[in-house]
Design a protein around this nucleic acid. Structure first.
Length: 340
DNA sequence: GGCAAAAACCGCCAAG
DNA sequence: ACCTTGGCGGTTTTTG
């Protein structure tokens, strides 16, 4: 399950492949053992020309896709190119064989070309979202989010959102602690969740009040406090209605939902790294009661807090019943705004 | 899981 | 003409 195949198409932009290589390539078995095994695959023999004048000398073949636990598809050179039958077949076979398939940026066009996105929610770089939607009407394109986790198919927005997606994969497999550790090592910001807007604009309000960013930072640092939307709005020097609008524009979600996701992240972290009681963790994260935390936990993470803790307790790669983590429904988090 | 109260959400619209 | 704000109120979600 821990094998990752990176599909290298001709002239793939370097950054796209480089981030995946940087995150999954080095041996990080000190964080999670075993660490991933990354294989670079291409349709033909090497050297495969990569963007900016680089070349991949000795790629593995497409059959490596079939045996991989995860297949990552970066952006093609241009969105107009139709992926070859060989590539489509290999992707479909991998998917049918149980691999999860993740695309970065306009890699979504390759997945769509292979028919893997039909009827599914997906995202891509905002500049190409319209084109994706019109060329593949069966795909439910959401241009507003960083990435979408649809279980066995994951898509992400422009380039750097690919980093978020990779960290998300690590979170699913190994928990927030390991994902955050990797983020720290590559000096990326930890866990931006998928529903976050592609554009983050946090205009400073130099009039009264603090900037929205400051208020959200403060809220994140004081989750244990009783926080209300009205109170936060006051702190930001805004009317409640306006505050809600700004939060939505900045984070892609409403104030309470944003708070809830912060609380859940914190709770995950405390569950993994401390022995504190569920009651106490709920309190510290700002859930009124443990029951309330449990309710949100089950809905968002897919399992109750106790089970989450048992699963991710430092470094264990397997659940109590012995099944590999990848097979658990911990990845049901659909961070995109819930259906209306 | 259900329940009632409270809080949040959001479309609409008028005003700045 | 265009954009942002803030109030209203009906609906939805959260909470204990």
């Amino acid at each position: 399950m821990n094998t990752i195949a990176l599909l290298v198409l001709d002239q793939v932009p370097v950054f796209e492949v480089a981030t995946v290589c940087e995150i999954f390539g080095p041996d990080r078995s000190d964080l999670a053992d075993p660490w991933y095994q990354l294989t670079l695959c291409a349709a033909g023999p090497g050297p495969v020309p990569v963007g900016s004048g680089f070349a991949l000398l000795e790629p593995a073949g497409l059959d490596a896709l079939r045996t991989a636990g995860t297949v990552i598809v970066p952006a093609p050179e241009n969105t107009g190119a139709v992926p070859s039958d060989a590539v489509c077949d290999a992707l479909r076979a991998a998917h049918a064989g149980g691999a999860r398939i993740a695309s970065i940026c306009t890699g979504a066009f390759v997945l769509a070309g292979a028919g893997l996105l039909d009827g599914r929610p997906a995202t891509t770089h905002w500049m190409h979202a319209g084109e994706l939607a019109s060329r593949y009407p069966a795909v439910r394109v959401d241009p507003g989010v960083l990435y979408i986790d649809d279980g066995d198919i994951l898509t992400s927005a422009g380039t750097s959102a690919g980093i978020d997606l990779c960290l998300h994969l690590i979170r699913i497999d190994h928990g927030a602690r390991v994902a955050n550790a990797v983020a720290r090592r590559i000096v990326a910001s930890p866990h931006r969740h998928g529903g976050q807007a592609q554009f983050i604009e946090l205009p400073d309000r130099h009039q009264t009040g603090r900037s929205l960013g400051q208020v959200l930072d403060w809220a994140g640092a004081h989750l244990g406090n009783p926080l209300t939307v009205a109170g936060l709005a006051r702190r930001a020097g805004m009317n409640e209605r306006t505050f809600t609008r700004h939060v939505k524009a900045a984070t892609g979600t409403s104030p309470l939902q944003w708070l809830l996701s912060q609380r859940l992240r914190r709770a995950e972290q405390l569950l993994e790294t401390t022995e504190d009681s569920i009651e106490w963790i709920a309190h510290r994260c700002g859930f009124g009661t443990a029951a309330s935390m449990r309710r949100h936990f089950v809905r968002s993470v897919g399992v109750p807090p106790q089970q989450y803790r048992a699963t991710f307790r430092s470094g264990h790669r397997h659940t109590l019943d012995g099944t590999p983590l990848g097979s658990h429904r911990l990845n049901v988090r659909r961070d995109s705004p819930r259906p209306q």
